[in-house]
Each structure stands twice: as structure tokens, then as C-alpha cells.
Simulated assay, not measured.
Amino acid sequence: MHGPEILVLDEPFSGLDPVAVGVMSEVLRDRAAAGVPVIFSSHQLELVERLCDRVGIVRSGRLVAQGTIDELRATDRPLWEISGSLPAGWEAGVAAVTVTQEGPGAWRVEAASAEAAQAGLAAAMKSGTVTSFAPVRPSLTELFQDVVSAPEEAA
């Protein structure tokens, strides 16, 4: 009689070519679909983002963040991207937002609330042509960089 099964892997994608990565990904998905808990470590964060239900980030041997990717992405001040043909200073007078130009025709809006972001969008639309407005969804790589580069708290 077998006890409960659990699959624990250390860097299972390291050194694999793209075809082998696909095969290994399918094996891990199949085991998880069969009810087997699958735990693995990896620095290939795009694969982690694609495969995992929950993620833990370890720094200096300590678990410093954990949750679903959506939980880890949640912030107190949502970020939005606005693209379009807008004049300089279009954001003047919009309360509760900070706007930074990311490049030609692209701005990042840090908003205190979804309502404030909508007010920023309304100001942009009044000033020029908006071609896109979308929430910024940081990648797992960006989340990892933020967590590991943050100052360590005293134990």
C-alpha cells in the first residue's frame, strides 16, 4: 500500500531545450490534474507563471511572499497604461493620480482608486485620442525583482 504521493523537483527545466520543456510541463500538469501536489523550484519565472496555481518567493532562505499570481500582483495603488496621441500636460488637474510618460505616446498612471484611474482616462480622452487603456499586470519576474530587492526586515 502506498502513502500519499507528492512530487518535489529542483529546477526541473534547467538545461532543457524547448521541446523537452513542453514535455516536462505536460508531465507536471498531468500529475497535478491527477491530484498529486507538485512543488518545484525554478528561476524560469515565465514557466512558473504559466504552470503554477500558487507561488512562493524565497529570499535568503526565508519565504517572503506567497499566494496566487493575482494575489501577488495586487497593490494598494493600481497602475494603468494609457496610449495615444495626447498633448503634454493632459493630466493636469486630475486628482489622486500620478502620471509618468513611459515613451512616445505612452503613459503610466498610478491611481489611488479605479475611479481615479477612470478620471485620468476621461481627461486623456478630452485632450486627444486614446488608443488603449489597460491595467498594468506585472509579470512574475517583476514581482520577484521587487520582492528580492526590497530592504530586508529585521528578524
Rank of each mutant, 00 (worst) to 15 (best):
Q44M: 14
Q44Y: 01
Q44A: 13
Q44F: 08
Q44C: 00
Q44H: 11
L45G: 04
L45F: 07
L45S: 04
L45W: 10
L45Y: 11
E46F: 03
E46C: 03
E46W: 03
E46R: 14
E46M: 09
L47M: 13
L47Q: 14
L47V: 09
L47N: 12
V48W: 11
V48L: 11
V48F: 13
V48Q: 12
V48E: 10
E49D: 00
E49S: 12
E49M: 04
E49N: 04
E49H: 03
E49F: 04
R50H: 03
R50N: 05
R50T: 05
L51N: 08
L51H: 05
L51S: 09
L51C: 08
C52W: 04
C52S: 12
C52I: 02
C52R: 07
C52P: 11
D53M: 01
D53L: 00
D53Q: 08
D53H: 14
D53Y: 02
R54D: 02
R54C: 01
R54M: 11
R54I: 00
R54W: 01
R54H: 11
V55K: 08
V55R: 07
G56S: 12
G56M: 01
G56P: 03
I57K: 05
I57C: 05
I57Y: 11
I57T: 07
I57W: 13
V58L: 14
V58H: 01
V58S: 03
V58Y: 04
R59D: 15
R59C: 10
R59S: 12
R59N: 15
R59T: 07
R59A: 13
S60Q: 15
S60K: 01
S60P: 04
S60I: 04
G61N: 12
G61S: 07
G61A: 06
G61M: 00
G61I: 00
G61L: 06
G61Y: 06
G61C: 05
G61P: 12
G61K: 00
R62N: 06
R62V: 07
L63M: 12
L63W: 10
L63F: 04
L63S: 08
L63V: 06
L63E: 07
L63G: 13
L63I: 04
V64P: 12
A65Y: 02
A65C: 03
A65P: 03
A65T: 02
Q66G: 00
Q66C: 05
Q66N: 12
Q66L: 05
Q66Y: 08
G67T: 11
G67H: 01
G67V: 10
G67S: 11
G67L: 02
G67C: 09
T68I: 09
T68M: 07
T68Q: 02
T68A: 06
T68H: 11
I69N: 08
I69D: 11
D70H: 01
D70M: 00
D70W: 01
D70P: 04
D70A: 02
D70L: 08
E71R: 01
E71Q: 09
E71T: 00
E71C: 00
E71D: 08
L72K: 10
R73Q: 09
R73T: 02
R73L: 10
A74I: 08
A74T: 13
A74Y: 09
T75M: 06
T75P: 13
T75N: 06
D76P: 15
D76Q: 14
D76H: 07
D76T: 12
R77I: 04
R77C: 14
R77H: 15
P78A: 15
P78L: 15
P78V: 10
P78I: 12
